[in-house]
């Protein structure tokens, strides 16, 4: 992925943010929805935008920041293009989800404490149950669900994404 110029992103984003705010009638009770849409647009919540939203909604930046940090879905750091959600729900856990996570991290060459690849292609997260318990262990790549995983399968799946074939 090409380097993105921070300035360009921001000038563009305020326009989009304005449209999102408009759609939600600048209503602070829609804050969660607003943040969801902003994150969908930029794959994370840039700090400048949080402050901007606070001003636009007439609430304190701390309030917006508080909401943004409460929910697991929101990220204040840039995320990859493909978000890999390895399920660590009960069914997947007892069927070896930790092995799947290890395989994913190894494939991507992530070091401890890292969860996004430097080229911003992949981000790895764990979630508790994606509702595919019957296919445990399972994971999601963006909205696509993959079940009955093992190390081999994980590799094939990620290879396909890397080559941009999926």
């Amino acid at each position: 992925m090409p380097e993105v110029d921070q300035e360009v992103v921001l000038s563009r984003s305020f326009e989009k943010v304005n449209a999102i705010l408009q759609k939600h009638q600048h209503n602070p009770s829609n804050l969660v929805g607003i943040l969801q849409e902003v994150q969908e647009e930029y794959r994370y919540l840039p700090e400048e935008i949080l402050t901007y939203i606070a001003t636009a909604l007439g609430v304190s930046p701390a309030y917006v920041y508080g909401v943004a940090t409460f929910y697991a879905q929101f990220s204040l750091k840039p995320k990859g293009k493909y978000i890999i959600r390895v399920c660590d729900g009960t069914a997947c856990h007892v069927k070896g989800s930790m092995g799947v996570l290890k395989a994913v991290r190894e494939y991507l060459g992530l070091k401890e404490g890292e969860d996004t690849t430097p080229d911003l292609l992949f981000t790895v997260e764990t979630v508790a149950c994606i509702g595919a318990c019957a296919l445990a262990p399972a994971m999601m790549v963006n909205e696509e669900v993959y079940g009955l995983l093992d190390e081999e399968k994980v590799k094939t799946i990620l290879e396909r994404y890397e080559e941009g074939r999926e």
């Binding site: 209503n27 602070p28 009770s29 829609n30 804050l31 969660v32 929805g33 943040l35 969801q36 508080g66 909401v67 409460f70 929910y71 697991a72 879905q73 929101f74 979630v127 508790a128």
Partner: peptide, 26 residues
Amino acid sequence: IREGAGAFVCGEETALIASIEGKRGM
């Protein structure tokens, strides 16, 4: 429809209400 944002505690009624109101789901 309101979409949750990934917090187990939001299944609890009072937290769920807080979340719909756009607050931290406590």
